[in-house]
Each structure stands twice: as C-alpha cells, then as structure tokens.
Design a protein around this nucleic acid. Sequence first.
RNA 1: GCGUCUGUAGCUCAGUUGGAUAGAGUAACGGCCUCCGAAGCCGUAGGUCACGCGUUCGAAUCGCGUCAGGCGCACCA
Length: 595
Amino acid sequence: MLRELIKENFIKAVLMAGEKGELTGINPENIEQLMIEKPKNTEFGDFAVNISPLAKYAKIPPAKIAEIICNYLDLKDIELSIISGFINFKIKKELLNNCIKEIIVKNNDFGSNNIGNSEKVLLEYVSANPTGPLHIGHGRWAAVGSSLANLLKFSGYNVFQEFYINDAGNQINNLGKSLWIRVLQELGEAANFPEDEKEAKNYYPGDYLIEIAKEYLKNNAEKTAKLRGQNPDSLLPSEEIVTEMSTFAKQLILEDQKRLLSLLGVNFDRWFPETSLHKTNEIKSALEKLKNSGKIYEKEEATWFKSSDFGDDQDRVIIKHDGNYTYLTADIAYHYDKLERGFERLINIWGADHHGYVARIKAAIQALGKDSGCLEVLLGQLVNLIISGEQVRMGKRRKMVTLQELVDDVGVDGTRYWMIMRDINTTLDFDIELAKSCSDENPVYYSQYAHARACSILRTAVSERPDQENKQILPSKVTEQELKTLFDPNFFDIYKLNDLWKTGDLKELDSTRMLILRLESFDDILLNAAKSRAPYMIARYIQDLAKDFHYFYTFTRVLNVNDDVMKARLVLIQATKQVLSNAFKLLGVSAPEKM
RNA sequence: GCGUCUGUAGCUCAGUUGGAUAGAGUAACGGCCUCCGAAGCCGUAGGUCACGCGUUCGAAUCGCGUCAGGCGCACCA
C-alpha cells in the first residue's frame, strides 16, 4: 500500500511542477516507467525513486529535479532525502502503526485488490486423459492452477475453474482393449499385451487396470463369459467389448482423479467431457462457423483449416480421411463454447509439450471472429523427479510415480507448496526424499513454523504459568477478553501502538520496522503476482515474511516486558499471523496453530 | 534444421520488468537456549550472472550471434 501511495504522490508532484513551469519536457509516460524501489542499503530509506532517467527529458541535473519534486510532494509521515540522484523515503512510525491497523481492520481481506474488475475468467487446468492415474506432472498444474484461481479471485476476477476430460478418441479404445486383456488374465487365461514395440504403444500396461479388472468382474461375471465366447482372440476384441471396457475403466479412473484432486484441495466448478461436444453437435456448428470464414479446404481426402493465415506455421487437418475429427477439432469447439458462454478471458495451463498447440487454437479463435488476445496460455515446464540424487524420466507408458504416491509420502501441504514454489517457466526438480524429509531443509516447515510460533505466543499470553521459584501458579499476562478487544477493529486504538517504539534497543526497533514493512508489502506482492499469473511469488513472500518474523522474535521479547509494550507487540504478532494465514490460504496450504 | 523454455554461489532458486556494493534457502565453518516453540537466530566463507558483440548516463535484465540442456515440430491425444 505504501508503494502505491508514494507512486501516486510522486506522479502528482511531477505534474504539478510541470504545470508551474518548474519542470519541463516530462510527460506522464516518462514517469510511469519509474519504479518505486527498495534501496539495497536501508540507511538511505525504505523506498526510493531514481531521478536520473528524468534528466534527459528535463535537461537539468538530477539533483535539481529531485529538489523540485520534493517541494511538491505531499506525503504525511514520510521523511524525504536526496542522495546521489535518488529521492529516498523513510516511513515514520505513525504511518507504520497505520499499516498494522489496516491489517487488523481488513482481516481476511487484507491483500486483496480489484484489478480484475469482475472480469469473467475461465481457468482451465489439469485436463488429464481418463486413461490412467494422475502423475506428478499433473500435480504441478493442479496446485498452480487452484492457487492461481484463489489469487485471481482475491484480485477481483470472477473465476470459473474447469477440467476438460479427454474422453474420446483412439486412446479410449486403447484403454478398452487393455482392460479386456486384464480381465482375461483375471480369469486365468493366457492373454497378454503384444510383444512388438510398435503394437505395444496402443496399450496401457500399468498395474492400475488389474484392480479395475477385478472390480469389473465382481458384478459382470456372466456378461464377461458371454462376450468371451464370441471373441476368441484377446488382441482383437469386438467393438462391443471395447466400448464396454473403456466405459467402465474411464469412469472409475475419472472418479479416482476427482477424489485425489479434492483431497489436494483442488476443486473444479465443472468437469467438461469432450464426448459432450460430439453428442450435442457442437463440433459441427463450430465447423460451420469455420467454413463461413472461408479458411477451410479439402486436400488428400482430408479437410484442412488454413491456420497459417493466422500465424500458425502450417495448416492443420480437422477431418481425417476416415471421416473422424482430430483432437484439435474438438478443442476448437471447446474454446468456442467457452467464449459463447460469455467468458471474457480464457486462461489455460498447459504442459510445455503442448506449446505447438497455442498457435492453432489462437488461429481458430480468430477465424471464428473473436479476439485471440482473450486467450492466455500459461505453458509450464515439466517436472523432473529426483530419486536418490538421480533424475527419473517420466513417461506415460513406463513405470512412474503417481501423484497419489507422492501425496501419501509428502502430504498435501508439502506437495502443494513444492509444486507452487517455482516459476512455471523453469523445470521443477522434485527431490522426493527432500520433500519427504520433513526436516529443516524443507521450506514448507520453515514458513509454517513461523505461523505456529505466532500462535504459540498468543496462546501463552492468555495461559496461566507456573512460577519456578515460588512454586506458584501465576495468572495469564492478558485475559482472553482483553486480547479479543485488542484485536477488535471496532475498539482498535492505534495510539497504543506507539509503545512499539518506546525502546532504545536498536535491534528491537530494526526488527519491528522490518517486520511491519514486510507485512505492508503483501498487497503489493499480490498485485504483481496476479498480473504475472505467478502464484510462486506468494510462496517466496511467505518465506521472506517468515524470515523477518523469526528475526523479530529473536531480538524482541513480547511477553516479558511491561504491559503496554506487550500489548502493542501482541497486536503486531496478530497482524503477522493474519498475513501468513491469508497467504497460506491462497496457496491452499494449511496454517497450523501447532506443529 | 525450425519454434520455445532454461543457463546466476558446491546444490535448489529469487532478482520488483534497465538502476545504488548481484540476494535467499541448503550444504561447510564459528557462535547463541535459567526467559514467549533452537523446526529458530547471528556471523564467516562462497560469483567471469554460460560466452561474445551491440544499444546508453547505466545491462544478470533489452537486441543480435555462439555454446549447452529441456520440451515440441502427426490425418496421436
């Protein structure tokens, strides 16, 4: 909030100086580029603006410009100083107190903003195939996606979360064929997956289908026998069998995915099956629209979309020579459907392996007469699994670690935090032993510990305590009621916070200032994170805040000081707890009271 | 070959969109608990920001090129 405050005032001051003719040649765009930064050396101040870039517009020395601007700045409770081309801002204690007050008053809403302005956003993520259990890569998109949804909601967007179920196409047939083999195996027959490598690619040999086969046979023994009788070749099952098998398998797999995501705190507003697009003729009508655009042509017994007219590097087939649609065709219809439903912005989180797809979907949106700028695709790099210090290659059809196994090992909090804490533009090295370790090498615990510690102090403040020397029970430092009143916005007395500064101890003053300035910057961090669609910034902030709090804790006693100082510091503890809790909530990670 | 992401301390990563002496965590070394949680804190050490050229008052950040790695480049999904 302080950064915004300073920025607004700064711009106003420059414009006023311009009007008075004291500063010429500077227009608003020049100032917009100026950043309110944090000085590396805190001696200078808490915030700073570099004036040098303005010199080339104003054609007078930076020091002179700074002086002029300072004369027009109207900032209460902020000290100004000019040092080598910088205007430095030092926040006075009255304003710091006010920051604490704002946190207490805004409570669960502290940090929120309204850059979204109620824009209707459809956020699509995970969208895994229902052909097998979710793996670790899906976990990254699940965690990042749901946390981004929280962040965007907190920033005033109207967010709708959707999971697109790829439940059509060859892969589903392959799933059916694979389950059939597992069913036959369960019946004691010599059925097996093909040896030939090329053929084997059309099957899912994972163990999970064994369980599903058992489940199927529980209720369908007779039906199986009948189907078996008509189809002697286990590798060439009838269409009826494939449909029966795939329908059963995909339903169970989907249920399992839903259960796991829900366990992870990932909740979709809608699960959108690809098959529904086929059933409702939506693909056909989207194709009609495309045809009207004149960007469709026939070649080599197939139908093509001239996507190269819209920036794609080549044209794409949308109806194959056998009359079936490609995956792209359904996806075009899906995105058209999203827009038809009135969403103004579409955000997709895709794995980097799909990046070739972005241009085609954007091309299609344009051909359908919409603005392709409404589609933002966040391409995330993949997850490398590190086991015993070695990279393990992940692959759909080879042995891999499932998301379920990871969650069993690392827990929900650990999984989410680790998946979120890195920029999605970088490949994530997930060291499974490190994340499992629950040790101090694990950043999750470091930050949660700060929250637990804050809670502990508040708990201790209202607890009776034994006195070692006199073997007596001493009363609590404050009563529950007093504490409640202390934090109640309606009774909040900002002047009591002046006691925060009644100390001659430099470490106490320093750690208190640092902590408040960090708390205060939360909304600024969130603004940036939301604009950049980057939840990892929140994880980073939490670690910084935890660091400042631990530092504060080490140098500043809260409970063993006089009552007024103690109460002022308890308010600061409460504010810290509040901000940590708000931040954790956005990540979907718990903020434990005890650990 | 083309597209794209990445390259910063031994390791894992930040770097506020071009600014003051490049920062955290972890690992290494040395310190700090009669007192609110030591799952913590302080200090020391650790760097050719992959490399080269350019843009300007100023570059880890922007442009071009080179090198290395990841991921794509289907009438698969």
